[in-house]
């Protein structure tokens, strides 16, 4: 009996290994392909996964360096990838800071204070985050067009406008931080208050230093979430020099202007940093995500 079980057990293990390796090969195939395509000459070239003649032309173009073909032709970078990356980082950085500030202060009030309308406000926040911004795109567009009439620097086609549009996305983060604050005993803050600290000082000097891990998680989640956001940015930004990476990248793969090789290099260049952050911080980031919603 035991012998039979062991034997089938071993076969099952082997089968599981084979299955997993095959499955992983299949899922990782796109990434290997992209790496190989980025090193192949031309935008239409066909070749094996390990490229025979390696060229750095696509990488040069992605980094904004003009590339000189063997026949003396100069190829200029098709799109300002680094500028887009900078735009994305700028918008995402400022947004993440603002979102962090707004959600931390609200979370403090929700976690530590009692006031009328508290549970109503909390539930409303929870409900509202179920309706994605993509559903109110028309209104967002109309609102920022109106804003632009009086304050052109915050209207359509500005980064300030885009950042403002993202500022409302605090619901999930406020809940996450509130949950974390509640795991920290309030005694420390009470002690600080007895020593004469104001509630703000207790919040700033006592509670926040203890909550740094969750603040980092929320900052990163908000940062990544903004980096990869497409719908709102695609409606609010028009000029090529203003685009974020997520909106600009699709310009590479238009039917009329198909730049597969250039896209591959730009995709690796821009995707790698976020991927690395996500893999390194997966243990913390994922717990924040699975608590709330689904990543796009």
């Amino acid at each position: 009996m035991a012998m039979v079980l062991d034997k089938s057990h071993r076969w099952r293990l082997v089968a599981a290994h084979i299955g997993l390796v095959a499955f992983i090969a299949l899922t990782v195939f796109p990434f290997l392909m992209v790496l190989s395509i980025s090193l192949r000459p031309g935008n239409f070239a066909v070749g094996s996964i390990i490229p025979t003649d390696v060229t750095l032309e696509h990488w040069k173009l992605a980094l904004g360096i003009p590339y000189v073909k063997p026949d003396g032709h100069i190829v200029n970078p098709p799109f300002p990838v680094l500028l887009w990356l900078w735009n994305s980082v700028k918008v995402a950085g400022v947004t993440a800071l603002l979102v962090l500030a707004l959600s931390t202060t609200s979370a403090y009030a929700f976690a530590r204070m009692r006031f009328t309308g508290r549970s109503f406000a909390l539930n409303t926040l929870m409900l509202m985050q179920m309706f994605p911004a993509v559903l109110s795109l028309v209104a967002i567009y109309a609102i920022f067009e109106t804003v632009g009439d009086s304050v052109p620097k915050m209207g359509i086609n500005t980064h300030a406008g885009l950042i403002l549009a993202y500022c409302g996305g605090i619901a999930m983060h406020a809940w996450t931080i509130k949950g974390y604050f509640e795991t920290i005993p309030a005694e420390m803050e009470e002690a600080a208050k007895v020593d004469g600290a104001s509630p703000f000082q207790a919040f700033w000097h006592v509670l926040l230093p203890m909550a740094v891990p969750i603040l980092v998680v929320v900052f990163l989640l908000s940062f990544i979430g903004t980096m990869i956001e497409v719908p709102v940015a695609s409606v609010l930004l028009h000029d090529e020099k203003n685009l974020t990476l997520a909106v600009g990248s699709r310009l590479y793969l238009y039917q009329q202007n198909y730049l597969w090789g250039d896209f591959a290099a730009a995709a690796i260049l821009s995707g790698l940093p976020i991927t690395m952050v996500f893999i390194l911080g997966q243990r913390w980031l994922v717990s924040g995500l699975t608590a709330g919603g689904v990543k796009g």
């Binding site: 990869i228 990476l245 997520a246 990248s249 793969l253 995709a267 991927t275 893999i279 997966q282």
Partner: peptide, 14 residues
């Protein structure tokens, strides 16, 4: 875990 870590817009375009 890899497909989850890569930004969605990049893998979709890939």
């Amino acid at each position: 875990f890899l497909p989850y870590a890569v930004p969605g817009f990049i893998s979709i375009l890939v």
